[in-house]
Amino acid sequence: MSAVSEAATSSAMRTREATVRRFAFTDMVFRAATRASAILVLVLLGGVAISLIAGSWEALSKFGISFLSTESWNPVTENFGALAPIYGTIVTSAIAIIIAVPIGIGIAVFLTELCPRPLRRPIGIAVELLAGIPSIIYGIWGLFVFAPFLQTTIQPFIIWLFKGIPGLNSLFAGPPYGIGLLTSSLILAIMVLPFITSITKDVFDTVPAVLKESAYGIGCTTWEVTRRVTIPYTRVGIMGGVMLGLGRALGETMAVTFVIGNAHRISASLFAPGTTISATIANEFTEADGAIYTSSLVALGLILFIITFIILALARYMLLRIDSRTGA
């Protein structure tokens, strides 16, 4: 009797041990799988960097550092330089940011200070929906609706307005093509607006109510509270949002490809067609014949990767700083 129960207990012990071991094993496997996936994220970014360096090696070793300072882009003589696309990328992104930042901050102020509460969420969502629209949609809209509008109304007016003013008249020199650097900048501004707005709104919400209330208490107007309390308190976060928008603008491809005109030259006029790094790659990659042509395009990609990596890393660093402050 007791022997039987002893045997039963020990067999129960054994199955129990086996079960625990099995649990521990499955747990180890699951843990290893999650860890491997996390490491894969790092491997992806490393892989991107390595493959871009490998793919651009031929062009970089042939042209060297002068690749960065050469304007010529000639597939026939196989002489390539990145200056025009780099110039176009930086100019369009910079103008886009200059336009989008004040509007983005304005919308954020409107949403946090002025907007009636029931409207706040719908308007916030509507602005964020702008962020979800694929860039090719902005492209087709820019090409068929926005560019003709600029060409027939805005651009002739601006050309006429600045005709006699030195400096400005070469910056806005005609003829009005509709497509070009300025059109791309405006489309980019619309595209980065939601990113800047939503981050600015989020960091505005982190301002302690007590700070704002004490400013209101000594008789400040809403604008003075925004200007003297909210914006100084959230400066780092706003900068992070702006950098994030800049990162998007620099790498934006399809919308720009539609409206920039793809001309490999640097013109003083913002109305002239130009090109950006991503637009050049998108337009020419599948048609590139010859190893050096393809390699030069990958080298452009590498430059874009490095620029955006630095900008985005800075953006994340700034946003982390404001996160840790509100967390503390």
Partner: peptide, 17 residues
């Protein structure tokens, strides 16, 4: 977070290579 906003055309180049 960087991959999240990295230009998608770079991903295209990566997969091409």
């Amino acid at each position: 977070d960087i991959l999240l906003s990295a230009p998608s055309i770079i991903v295209g180049l990566f997969v091409y290579e």
